[in-house]
Amino acid sequence: MKTYIEHFLTHGYVLLPNLLIEEECRHFRTLLDANYQQYSAHYANASSTTGTLSDKSIEKVVFNLHNKSMDWFKLFEHPDILDLLDVVLKQGSYNNNEPYYLNNISARCPLMGNQGQQLHLDSGLPGVNYCLKVNVVWLLDDFTASNGATRLVPFSHTWTEFPENGTQHPDEILITGQQGGALIFNANMWHGGGPNVTDASRWALLLGYARWFIKPSFDFMKNTPEHIYNQMSYAQKQLLGFQLAPPKDEFTRLRRISSVPEQPVPYKLP
């Protein structure tokens, strides 16, 4: 693991191979296809000036997998992933020990004809001294040059600017690999999905882990069914940040981090 951590800190990314077997990948793909069929018609509309990042018409996407199956926690809290995150997402904090949490959970499968994504970064703030957020991309299918594998620009996690819209970078590389691996990279890194010119499946689980003070993509306190929450272990509740909800007022709590995970509000999936 030390070698993987060093590669991540230097290059901004690392690929961990062979974490899942083929049968496990098939199981998770089956879950995603079923979830997409069941819920995609209910999605809210998105609009943005970022073009390819907001256009979901030529890809399948599933969000908030924590509220659909406990099976996903096998990947959320995979020990090899957390061993790396325990270093890079605590580095520079008080005593190198302040918490991080899983603040974004989704999965994506580009369809045939998808032209790929605009290069972008996910931290929202380029050029900071320490890693604020880490993206973990689980390869649930093989990633190939023709089915939309992820493009990265190595060392770009240290740059202080955003990529220009509609451009490629001469130093970008394509991350290909067999199903069952996990690509881990600093969310400051310039990256984007590649074009898919095949009709093959290319599901990827997309997880974002962030330092505790960074806002999540969705409010887990408001979208977690009680029966799911009650199945979570104490560590799983912490991983999803149920102790990080800000206090309602000064009469409830004074610190932004609670001493114990808090109960989410009632919620049911559509």
Rank of each mutant, 00 (worst) to 15 (best):
M1S: 11
Y4S: 08
I5M: 11
H11I: 06
V14A: 03
V14G: 06
L15A: 10
P17T: 12
P17V: 07
L19Q: 03
L20S: 00
L20P: 01
E22A: 15
E24V: 08
E24S: 11
R29Q: 15
T30G: 14
L31S: 06
N35T: 09
A41K: 14
H42E: 13
Y43G: 07
N45F: 09
G51C: 03
G51P: 07
D55P: 04
S57L: 01
E59Y: 08
L65M: 06
H66W: 04
H66L: 04
N67E: 13
K68D: 02
M70I: 07
F73S: 09
K74W: 09
K74C: 11
F76Q: 10
E77P: 07
E77K: 13
H78A: 10
P79S: 02
D83N: 15
L84G: 06
L85C: 13
L85P: 02
V87Q: 06
V88R: 03
L89F: 03
L89Q: 07
Q91V: 05
Q91A: 10
S93Y: 10
N95Q: 14
N97Y: 06
N97S: 15
E98R: 01
E98F: 04
L102F: 04
S106F: 07
A107I: 08
R108Y: 07
P110I: 00
P110N: 00
N114Y: 13
N114S: 11
Q115V: 11
H120L: 07
S123R: 03
G124D: 08
G124F: 05
P126L: 05
G127F: 09
V128A: 05
V128R: 04
V128Q: 10
Y130L: 13
Y130R: 11
L132N: 12
L132M: 12
K133T: 13
V137M: 14
W138N: 02
L139G: 00
L139K: 06
F143Y: 12
A145M: 06
N147I: 03
G148W: 00
T150G: 06
T150A: 06
L152Y: 01
L152A: 00
P154E: 08
E161K: 12
E161W: 10
P163D: 01
E172C: 04
I173A: 03
L174C: 05
L174M: 02
I175M: 08
T176V: 13
A182P: 01
L183Y: 05
I184R: 05
A187R: 02
A187C: 09
N188G: 10
G193H: 00
G194E: 08
G194C: 02
P195D: 12
N196I: 00
V197W: 12
A200K: 14
R202A: 04
A204D: 08
L206C: 03
A210C: 11
R211G: 03
W212N: 03
W212M: 01
K215A: 15
S217I: 13
S217P: 07
M221N: 07
M221R: 09
K222F: 11
T224S: 10
E226A: 13
H227N: 15
I228D: 04
N230Y: 12
Q231M: 07
Y234H: 15
Q236E: 14
K237W: 01
Q238S: 03
Q238V: 09
L239T: 06
F242H: 00
K248H: 08
D249P: 01
E250C: 08
F251G: 03
R253T: 04
L254V: 10
R255I: 08
R256L: 15
S258W: 11
V265F: 12
P266C: 12
K268L: 14
P270C: 01
